[in-house]
Design a protein around this nucleic acid. Structure first.
Lengths: 199, 199
DNA sequence: TTGCTTACTTACTAATAAGTAAGTACGTTT
DNA sequence: AAACGTACTTACTTATTAGTAAGTAAGCAA
């Protein structure tokens, strides 16, 4: 009856991108190959090259999609209308979700380690993506401190950089030491940022 | 006259380990090869295999050496006799040094991204190394809060995990966004941990 | 029905990877 | 002088990598 396709029925191009992203976050850019994707998808490696001629383009497409998602999510009325603490919590949820998915780190954490081996295009796109995220969080923190709903010392931009840096690291720690360790770190972050009344 | 060899005259085995470590921290475990080391050293790849039969053994040797260095440094009278804030500062100096060396992340940050592709031996050794470092820092933080020289909320172990996580991430951020960004993050860390009187 | 486009497969290349086996040059010991 | 261990090199194998070129089957358009 429904004209909507089932959730698994993405077109090949999208399925490649999904799988490549999953492999990237699980294994790093240099440790996944067109063969991995092809085998999992039940096609030949050349089929991946048809959709994404080079690995550089595939990698860039992954960053670009995350960039689009960030902008879309950030500008959603459902998100812009939240209070600063709620916006912070919504951000933390993104990382909690990754941690719960087991061995996935975030895009930044996956690419930063391999950064010097990445094509220049991907390096630049990662900088932009990460810069925009930091800028957004700095705004949230500044607003939160202004209305008394968040507490921290120092410049909002420095604090935003520090919080995001901690989140990047926390998913790597989760991979090595388990999810429990990740939650200790996040609890510490929340305890510090939320004023006692709200905790 | 002096019987001491010049600093560059390490034996091949040590030079291999030095170079492998450098390449690991710059490029990640999967993006450096026996060929890279051999070419830089002016020998053939098989010579590397003579000293370190497999890449797994080479990688494990790198972690083991860092582990030995950590224990030695931590137990040095010159270090144990420092006050907690000074011990913290000494730890930060290790990371500052890496950041200044340009594109090097820390051992944990380099291996965590590739963690799922690492041999089991290396995974276990990284866990031990990181666990010991966290344990040490937790002790420093607890002592510092007890004598009023450091301030933070929450459990010392949680705070230690968070601080180290931030340091792991900060070197990755430095690689992507430059050293300046790294110093913002470290300044934020110090400002929060050192009580106003000491800042 | 002819021709074009899409989405592939088959079959390949060239480069690089880790790892091995056999040989060699040199210094030390016996 | 003979034997041995150390520290390699040469020459190789097997596997995997990204990437390419040519062919093909199916669907749609003119």
């Amino acid at each position: 009856m429904s004209t909507a396709a089932p959730a698994t029925a993405f077109d090949t191009r999208t399925r490649i991108l999904n799988l490549a992203e999953e492999l990237l976050l699980a294994r790093g850019f240099n440790a996944f190959s067109y063969q991995h994707i092809a085998k999992e998808l039940g096609v030949k490696p050349a089929a991946i090259h048809y959709h994404y001629p080079s690995k550089e383009e595939l990698g860039a497409a992954i960053i670009q999609r995350q960039q689009r998602r960030l902008r879309k999510w950030r500008d959603l009325p459902r998100v812009t209308e939240l209070t600063p603490p709620q916006q912070l919590e919504a951000l933390l949820d993104v990382y909690r979700h990754r941690a719960a998915r087991g061995p996935q780190v975030c895009l930044f954490g996956a690419l930063a380690a391999d950064f010097l081996t990445l094509p220049a295009v991907m390096q630049q796109e990662l900088r932009t993506f990460s810069g925009e995220l930091t800028h957004w969080l700095a705004g949230v923190l500044a607003a939160g401190r202004a209305d008394g709903s968040l507490r921290f010392i120092g410049h909002p931009f420095s604090k935003a950089a520090q919080v995001l840096t901690t989140l990047v690291g926390s998913l790597q720690v989760a991979r090595v030491h388990g999810e429990e360790q990740f939650h200790y770190i996040l609890r510490q972050l929340r305890t510090e940022l939320l004023p006692p009344s709200a905790a």
